[in-house]
Simulated scan of single mutants.
Amino acid sequence: MAENRASAEENTYGEGVPCWVDAQLPDLAAGRRFYGELFGWTFEEAYGGSVWARKDGEAVAGLAHKADGRMPTVWTVYFATPDVVRLSGRIREAGGQVVMAPVALGELGTAALAADPEGAVFGLWQAARHSGFGIRHKPGTFGWAELYARDTETANTFYGGLFTDALFGPDAAPDFGRAPVSDVFPVEMPPHFLVHFRVEDIEPVLGAVQRLGGRVQVPLFETSYGKVAVVTDNQGASFALLQR
């Protein structure tokens, strides 16, 4: 079983900071080919048959086989927490749901899945030997997560109550934001998190996505945090490309 080369003590993330992303894919081998060529990722076996993607030798994402065809093919963002059980209780008290109860993944840490009051799903991660991203904010690595909500005031109240320090504390440098779904997507699109990966030059990467069998879901647009385009991979998992 592989593990992040940086221990949890060496590279910790405060509660509410995005610390990991993974994708559940029907065809793991096809996912490795797509993302390996798109972002220059290399891969190694990890817990339970999943694989870790590495960029410049550092862990940047996970890919796992989707065993249940009824589950969506998606990228999930995980928020760090020192106590996943306690945070799960706070999520319920705030009007959210726990979709998957906390489960220990060997010596790596403990994971859970939750949903906010509007149904947007996100992950929780309590680190043990695996702290999360080895690197981020570099080309080919995690750069941002945007929550597309129907009611941003409700979202601000919910996440602000859960992750006050990460969003509003004196050392806050949030890696996720909130926007109305209708700003980018059709109004019928359900609320969701969209994982963004950094790129140096977005135009050629958009061409590579299509060449590799993916598609452009939302063409290039400007945001307060950079140029963004929403794409899907060759199996239908949506993510965004971000050029700062």
Rank of each mutant, 00 (worst) to 15 (best):
G96Y: 15
G57I: 06
E45P: 04
L108T: 09
A46Y: 12
V77M: 02
V99C: 05
T81K: 08
P82M: 05
K55Y: 07
R54S: 02
W75H: 11
T81C: 04
G49K: 03
S88I: 06
T73N: 06
D56F: 09
V84N: 12
P72K: 02
V98P: 06
R90G: 00
V74H: 05
G96D: 15
K55I: 00
G57E: 06
L105W: 10
L87A: 05
T73F: 04
E93G: 11
V103A: 10
D83L: 10
L108P: 00
P72N: 03
A64L: 14
L63Y: 00
R70L: 09
G89P: 13
G106A: 04
W52C: 12
R70W: 05
E45G: 10
V51I: 11
V103I: 13
V103L: 11
G106T: 07
T81P: 04
P82V: 06
W75M: 07
L87H: 09
G96E: 15
Q97Y: 06
A104I: 03
E45T: 10
G48M: 03
R86I: 02
G62L: 01
A67Y: 02
V98Y: 03
K55S: 11
T76K: 07
R70M: 03
W52E: 13
G69C: 01
T73M: 03
K55C: 02
V74W: 04
D83A: 13
A104P: 03
A94D: 01
S88W: 05
Y47Q: 07
L63Q: 00
M100T: 15
G89M: 09
V74R: 02
Y78R: 05
R54Q: 05
F79T: 07
R86V: 05
A46D: 09
A94M: 06
G95I: 14
E45N: 11
E107L: 08
G95W: 15
T76H: 06
G96R: 11
G57P: 00
K66L: 02
R70V: 02
G89I: 11
W75L: 09
H65I: 12
S88P: 03
V98K: 03
E107M: 06
K55F: 08
I91F: 14
L108K: 13
D56I: 02
R70G: 12
G48I: 01
L108H: 11
Q97S: 13
A94I: 01
V98G: 01
A94R: 08
G49Y: 05
T76M: 07
G106E: 07
A61N: 01
G62M: 04
V74Q: 05
V103T: 14
L105Y: 13
G89T: 11
V98C: 00
S88C: 15
